[in-house]
């Protein structure tokens, strides 16, 4: 998780999108619950759709780690690798909570 912290420090949103970052983090945390539900139900198709969306718009908002993890989950979903997806989902959870905390505190 230390690595994730280091990554978070380096992430920056594109100009003009800073004001949306907190809401972005909040929405993603909600969607993460949906993702975990899909994974637990072995509904990898739905899980892939969620991360596909994340992959498309995360980076400009400064959520580069989320983009990278989304790509990984997409690949793992195709491979039916539920265990690995769960591991990554835990990391994403930590990441998003940390991001939200930092953004909220104006750090």
């Amino acid at each position: 998780m230390k690595i994730i912290d280091e990554l978070i420090e380096k992430e920056k949103p594109n100009k003009g999108l800073e004001i949306f970052c907190e809401e972005f983090a909040k929405d993603r945390i909600e969607e993460l619950s949906e993702l975990l539900l899909c994974v637990n139900n072995a509904d990898l198709t739905s899980a892939a759709k969620i991360v596909h969306k994340w992959k498309g718009f995360s980076a400009p908002y400064g959520f580069n780690y989320l983009e990278a993890m989304s790509k990984e989950i997409e690949v793992l979903a195709k491979q039916n690798n539920l265990d690995e997806i769960k591991v990554i989902a835990e990391k994403i959870e930590y990441y998003l909570n940390e991001k939200r905390r930092i953004i909220s505190n104006g750090i």
Binding site: N14, K15, G16, L17, F20, F24, D27, K53, G56, F57, P60, Y61
Partner: peptide
């Protein structure tokens, strides 16, 4: 349908 994209492209 993703507001994140809309906002992004709008920006």
């Amino acid at each position: 349908d993703a507001k994140e994209n809309s906002r992004l492209f709008n920006a």
